[in-house]
Each structure stands twice: as C-alpha cells, then as structure tokens.
Simulated scan of single mutants.
Amino acid sequence: MSRSQITTHVLDAARGTPAAGVAVELLRRGTGDEWTSLARAATDDDGRVNALGPERVAAGEYRLRFDTGAYFAAGGTRGFYPEVLITFTVDEEGRHHHVPILLSPFAYSTYRGS
C-alpha cells in the first residue's frame, strides 16, 4: 500500500526518541456522535504510521486514537493519559493530512503537519 491520506508520527519528548509500538486507530464520524473505526496500526521504529486507512478519505470529521497507556506501561513508565484523542476535519478529498504528536507521560501536543 502506498502512503495513506492520513498519517501520523509520535515522538516521545521525555526520552527524546521516536515512540515505537504505539497503537493507533483511525475513526470517522458518522451521523450524530457515532464513530466508525476505519483502520488500526502501530507506530514503526521511527514512530511513524504511513499506512493507516485508505489512500483517499472523504471530507468529514476524523479522529486518531493513540493508546498511550499501553505504550508507557510497556516501558515501565506511569503516565497520566491512558489515551490521546485528536479530532480533526478533512475538508478536501485527496489532500494529505499528517497529524503528529509530541508525547510525554504528563503532557502531549499536536499540530497540522505536512
């Protein structure tokens, strides 16, 4: 599969390394508050997921769910956030959306990547 329209990258800011093995789920909002799971993957050794869901997604609201609790537990670290949810809008079909996060046990941040 070539690169998905939606990709992510997780950097462990506390360790100063990519966060390998973080489970990530891509969801799409349906009618009302229903969310449908489209794909699941885990970050590679560089903390990236380039094959997450279809190559093209329709316009709409999407969500990335990062299983940060399991990631920190596997490293013997106690974290505050068991998961991180990033909800964002895809306005135009076919445009790449890169949604990275900087992660630590007690904080995270995100931005619209390129």
Rank of each mutant, 00 (worst) to 15 (best):
T89M: 06
T68Q: 01
Y71K: 09
Y71L: 11
P54G: 13
P82W: 00
S37W: 08
G79E: 09
V90K: 03
S4K: 00
A73R: 08
T87V: 13
H9C: 12
S4I: 00
Y71A: 12
A74G: 12
V90F: 04
A70H: 05
R95Q: 13
T43R: 00
S37T: 10
G75E: 11
D12N: 15
H97M: 08
A14K: 03
R65E: 05
T68G: 06
L85E: 07
R48C: 09
D33V: 06
F66S: 04
V99T: 15
R78Y: 03
D44N: 13
A73C: 02
G32Y: 14
L85F: 01
T87Y: 09
S37P: 01
T8C: 10
S109Q: 11
T7W: 02
G79L: 05
R78A: 13
I6G: 03
Y111H: 12
I6L: 05
R56S: 08
G21Q: 07
Y71H: 11
Y62F: 10
H97L: 10
A13E: 08
T31Y: 09
V49A: 06
G75R: 13
T43G: 01
S114R: 13
E61Q: 11
E61A: 11
A19I: 15
L52A: 05
A74C: 09
V49F: 04
D12P: 11
W35K: 10
P100G: 11
W35M: 15
T17G: 03
H9D: 12
I101Q: 07
A13S: 08
H98C: 09
V84T: 02
A39P: 07
E61D: 14
F72A: 08
T77N: 06
M1V: 13
G76S: 11
E55R: 07
L26R: 00
F66Y: 10
A39Y: 00
G79V: 05
V84N: 00
L11M: 08
W35V: 12
G30Q: 12
S109H: 08
R28N: 05
V99M: 15
V90M: 03
R78K: 12
R112E: 14
H96M: 04
A19G: 14
V24H: 04
L26F: 02
A51V: 14
A107E: 13
N50W: 06
L38G: 10
S2K: 09
F66P: 00
E83D: 10
G47P: 11
F80D: 13
L103E: 06
I101R: 08
H98E: 12
N50C: 03
L27I: 03
E55T: 12
A23D: 14
T87L: 10
V90P: 07
R65I: 03
L27T: 06
A70D: 15
T68A: 02
S104T: 14
F72W: 12
P100M: 12
A23M: 06
Y108T: 09
P105W: 01
E83L: 04
R95F: 11
V57N: 08
V24R: 01
R95Y: 11
L64V: 07
A19S: 14
H9T: 15
R15H: 08
E55C: 03
F88C: 06
Y81P: 00
I101P: 12
A59P: 15
R65V: 08
F72I: 06
